[in-house]
Design a protein around this nucleic acid. Structure first.
Length: 207
DNA sequence: ACATTAAGTGATT
DNA sequence: AATCACTTAATGT
């Protein structure tokens, strides 16, 4: 409850906070765990208390692309609309680090929309934020070449995880940007020569 | 020591 | 930029 207040200051309705405390379940996931898989039926809306969730679009079997991060204080509003129209998940959500979530049952979330203006505002606000972050992603995809995308990707990851040392593989980046591993390896190599990064196995040092 | 996985690279399309 | 084929290097058992 204290946690909710701290992480979600927009929710400033005492009664709603009490409702949240009784109707939600806290869930801890570890780095790399899949929170929502492609095709899952969504029954809960996750609110992120601590940690980071990576959200990827998945198209078909082998096509995947990074959409955005959910950080502390964020919620995935689109999962709300998704289950309102009884759809299965179009995205996959993976924990990027050990993460604490607050799982809000859809039915409650729906009920609170009419009950609490604070909740309604919160959800709409989150919609807006998600939407902008998507537009950002679209810009990146449509208007920038791979090197810019890669730099953007690395910078985002670095700032989200608050570290200069990214622990990841070229292959994983390649999956997220939907290109081949070789392309990433070559670009990173070039960036290393340009003094932008330093490379080690499973590590990228941002300079 | 051996197997596995990550990364580097040249050639081809 | 993708695909392929192969090498080299790091890491796990």
């Amino acid at each position: 409850m204290r946690m909710i207040r701290k992480k979600f200051p927009e929710i400033n309705d005492e009664k709603l906070l009490r409702d949240l405390a009784v109707s939600t379940v806290e869930r801890s996931v570890k780095d790399g765990d899949i929170v929502i898989d492609y095709g899952d039926e969504i029954k809960f809306i996750p609110m992120v208390l601590e940690g980071t969730i990576k959200v990827n679009r998945q198209a078909g079997e082998d096509q995947e692309i990074f959409l955005y991060y959910l950080m502390s204080g964020d919620t995935c509003a689109s999962s709300f609309s998704c289950c309102m129209v009884q759809k299965r998940s179009e995205i996959i959500a993976i924990a990027e680090e050990d993460t604490k979530l607050l799982m809000v049952p859809v039915q409650k979330a729906d009920q609170w929309m009419s009950e609490y203006p604070a909740w309604r505002n919160f959800i709409f606000n989150m919609y807006d934020i998600r939407m902008f972050s998507m537009i950002d992603t679209i810009d990146r995809l449509a208007f920038s070449n791979l090197d810019e995308q890669l730099i953007d990707y690395l910078e985002k990851k670095s700032s989200v995880l608050n570290t200069k040392v990214l622990e990841t593989t070229h292959q994983e980046i390649a999956f997220d940007l939907n290109v081949t591993r070789e392309a990433i390896s070559r670009l990173l190599k070039k960036m290393e020569n340009d003094g932008l990064v330093r490379l080690e196995r499973n590590k990228i040092f941002m300079l």
